[in-house]
């Protein structure tokens, strides 16, 4: 028997979607192991969250503490290690999110646990815990064996397990916070919201997403023209913003904007998960990439495998002619 734990992620008074995904997978695994699924809820003024979590878990363990109001990997680690040190055989699930990335690996060291991060699947094979995850920027998948199976942590990629509400009614347990103060060596100060930019790409019906394949800043003109032709707006992948070629408010993806246009044309974008998660909701996706194995083609509806510097000018002319 193994007990499964899932760390509920919440921020600025809202439970984040990933939490329900973890709980859904967690319940399936707990059933398989004949154990229980415990939702771990750390924070301040938590009662408001309980009802929405109840149907998803056997138990909700609540650690109510004003010092846990905002996520801090160091305080979370103190609390979680206190809870999990008492467990002989556990699997802890958390999101492969900004919080999970900050916390998971260091917690695994403290607990002497194995860890697999950014996983999209979990399988139990001959009693071994096997995590499925992407490698090499999505070009291959890997099966990772968690060799220390009595103590394991898995962080899960967002969107991997669609949430399914079940008919459980979780028992609510209180765990006394072991924190006497927020750790002096790391203190949460504040959140800074993304500034409102000049253009709001989320409002556009047509977005041309440009990626590192554009090579030089000067070449952006090419896509700006294409966008003008079809009444769209230019968005981009992260490296274009990192290079300072376009402002941050044009970035599509997990650390940028989530867009749902009628048409998204990805040009010179490989299709990293962090980009996909921001544009997969588009109605129609077209990809232009010279690499036939680029992961973007698994997300797109139509694709052209070619050099963008050849295709884009011709495409622009044809679309101009079509509109005339």
């Amino acid at each position: 028997m193994k007990n499964v734990f899932a760390l509920v992620e919440h921020r600025q008074d809202k439970i984040r979607d990933i939490s329900y995904e973890l709980l859904t997978k967690g319940q399936e695994l707990a059933t398989l192991y004949g154990g229980e699924l415990t939702a771990l809820l750390l924070g301040n003024e938590l009662t408001k969250f309980i009802d929405s979590l109840k149907p998803y878990a056997h138990r909700i363990m609540i650690v109510e503490d004003a010092k846990l109001k905002d996520f801090n990997a160091e305080s979370y680690q103190i609390v979680l290690s206190n809870i999990l040190k008492q467990e002989q055989d556990f699997l802890l699930l958390m999101g492969h999110t900004a919080s999970g990335m900050d916390l998971g690996a260091s917690l695994s060291v403290e607990l002497g646990a194995s860890i697999a991060t950014d996983c999209t699947g979990i399988e139990i094979e001959n009693d071994n815990i096997i995590a499925i995850r992407q490698m090499y920027e999505g070009k291959l998948l890997a099966k990772v064996n968690l060799n220390i199976k009595a103590k394991s942590i898995i962080t899960i990629r967002e969107g991997s397990f669609p949430p399914q509400v079940s008919n459980l009614s979780a028992k609510v347990l209180d765990f006394t916070s072991p924190l006497t103060a927020e750790p002096s060596y790391r203190r949460f100060v504040e959140y800074i919201e993304a500034p409102l930019g000049e253009v709001d790409i989320t409002k556009s019906d047509i977005i041309i997403g440009i990626g590192r394949g554009i090579k030089e800043k000067e070449n952006l003109l090419l896509v700006e023209e294409l966008a003008k032709t079809i009444g769209g707006i230019v968005g981009c992948s992260r490296p274009i913003v990192d290079a300072g070629w376009l402002p941050k408010d044009r970035q599509v993806g997990s650390s940028g904007k989530t867009v749902k246009p009628k048409l998204y044309i990805a040009i010179g974008i490989s299709g990293a998960f962090q980009h996909i998660s921001g544009m997969k909701g588009a109605e129609t996706i077209i990809a232009i990439n010279k690499d036939p194995n680029a992961p973007i083609f698994s997300e797109a509806d139509y694709g052209i495998v070619d050099d963008l510097f050849k295709v884009v000018p011709i495409l622009k002319n044809k679309l101009t002619a079509m509109k005339a």
């Binding site: 921020r11 996520f71 900004a98 100060v189 959140y191 800074i192 993304a194 970035q251 650390s255 989530t258």
Partner: peptide, 10 residues
């Protein structure tokens, strides 16, 4: 953090 939100910490 996600969606362009930043966390400031000491």
């Amino acid at each position: 953090l996600e969606a362009g939100l930043l966390e400031v910490l000491d």
